[in-house]
Every structure is written in structure tokens, then in C-alpha cells.
Amino acid sequence: MSDVDLGLDVHHTSLSVADLDAQLAWYQHALGLHEIVEEYQLDEPAVRTVVLQSRSGVRLELIERAGATRSRAHTDPLDAASTLGFGHWAVSVRDLDTAFAAIVAAGGREVWPPADAVRPGSRFAYVKDPEDNLIELIQPPAR
């Protein structure tokens, strides 16, 4: 095990999607990821990518590859934990109830409504984007 400080920080999360244009529009509208910081396209294999960024610096890369398939959609985070790999994407929000309501109003689907989290003072909820990807919303404790 290394004790070296690698200066790790989250750069971006990548999400494979079936319809890049629809998911791009949804994430811009529902989560406020308005800034496009990078776009890329390959002809072979047919791949298109867009990296979105929020005002606070959160980045999400959307990747569309022709012919990509999903092995199965997960019903909730506990179901997602039944298969190996990433199960959901988690973001911090200032006001959980407002964020949850806005995302659901924008076409996100409710999975678990806002509730108290394990960490005292924290709250969380889960939603799905239009392609069934799980997103956890976390409201940290007030300072």
C-alpha cells in the first residue's frame, strides 16, 4: 500500500447512453450541467462524446456508441449492488427537496424519496434519468 499523496480529485464521471442528444438536453435542463467543455467523435467505432460541466465544476461525460446495449436496468441502489461495477452517480445538492422536485419535474423518475441519511444531518434521495441510470442526491449536514 502506498502512502504517497497522489493529489487525487474527481475529474469527471462517464456515462454510456443510447441517445446522446436527448441525454445531453436532459442533463443540461434537469441538473444544470450547461457548459460543454469537450466534444469528440469517432467514425470507427461510431462514438460521440460530450463532457458537460456545472457552475460548481462537476463534470459528466456522456458517451454514445452505436450498438451499445444494457445488460439490465437496476430498480434501485440495492439492486445495482447485485452486479459488479459502478451502480450510481452521486452529487451533492444544497436543498435536497428542491433538487429532487426539480429533477422529477424535468422527467427524472423517483426511485427513493428524500430521507435522512446515515451521517447525522445528511439527507439523500435517488432518481433515474430518462435512460434508467441511477443518480443519488446528497444534502450534506448544515455547517
Rank of each mutant, 00 (worst) to 15 (best):
residue 25 A to E: 09
residue 71 S to C: 10
residue 88 H to W: 12
residue 83 T to G: 04
residue 89 W to Y: 13
residue 112 W to H: 13
residue 5 D to P: 02
residue 90 A to Q: 05
residue 89 W to D: 02
residue 136 E to Y: 01
residue 25 A to P: 00
residue 74 H to W: 12
residue 107 G to D: 06
residue 57 G to T: 01
residue 1 M to R: 08
residue 96 L to Y: 00
residue 106 A to Q: 06
residue 32 G to M: 12
residue 118 V to G: 02
residue 112 W to N: 07
residue 55 R to D: 12
residue 49 T to W: 03
residue 24 L to V: 00
residue 29 H to G: 06
residue 107 G to K: 08
residue 80 A to Q: 00
residue 98 T to M: 08
residue 4 V to D: 13
residue 105 A to M: 12
residue 25 A to T: 08
residue 8 L to C: 13
residue 120 P to M: 09
residue 103 I to Y: 04
residue 37 V to D: 00
residue 79 D to P: 03
residue 113 P to H: 11
residue 75 T to Q: 14
residue 62 L to M: 06
residue 19 D to L: 12
residue 33 L to H: 02
residue 63 I to L: 14
residue 140 P to M: 08
residue 126 Y to R: 02
residue 69 T to F: 07
residue 50 V to D: 00
residue 143 R to C: 06
residue 14 S to Q: 13
residue 28 Q to K: 15
residue 10 V to E: 04
residue 68 A to H: 12
residue 38 E to F: 15
residue 119 R to K: 12
residue 95 D to V: 09
residue 67 G to P: 02
residue 26 W to C: 03
residue 74 H to G: 01
residue 129 D to F: 02
residue 107 G to P: 01
residue 78 L to K: 09
residue 109 R to A: 14
residue 111 V to D: 03
residue 46 A to K: 13
residue 127 V to D: 03
residue 21 D to G: 13
residue 140 P to K: 05
residue 94 R to M: 11
residue 41 Q to C: 09
residue 87 G to R: 07
residue 54 S to C: 07
residue 13 T to G: 12
residue 7 G to I: 08
residue 37 V to M: 06
residue 42 L to V: 02
residue 38 E to L: 15
residue 97 D to G: 03
residue 28 Q to I: 11
residue 60 L to I: 12
residue 29 H to K: 15
residue 55 R to G: 12
residue 43 D to C: 06
residue 74 H to S: 13
residue 30 A to R: 02
residue 128 K to Y: 00
residue 138 I to L: 15
residue 12 H to M: 07
residue 35 E to T: 11
residue 15 L to G: 00
residue 97 D to K: 15
residue 142 A to N: 10
residue 53 Q to T: 05
residue 35 E to I: 05
residue 138 I to W: 05
residue 88 H to L: 13
residue 95 D to R: 07
residue 45 P to Q: 03
residue 6 L to D: 06
residue 83 T to V: 13
residue 102 A to C: 11
residue 72 R to D: 03
residue 130 P to L: 14
residue 4 V to T: 12
residue 42 L to C: 08
residue 88 H to I: 08
residue 71 S to A: 10
residue 135 I to E: 01
residue 87 G to A: 07
residue 128 K to T: 02
residue 23 Q to Y: 00
residue 31 L to K: 02
residue 16 S to Q: 13
residue 72 R to I: 05
residue 119 R to P: 00
residue 56 S to E: 14
residue 66 A to M: 11
residue 105 A to H: 10
residue 75 T to H: 08
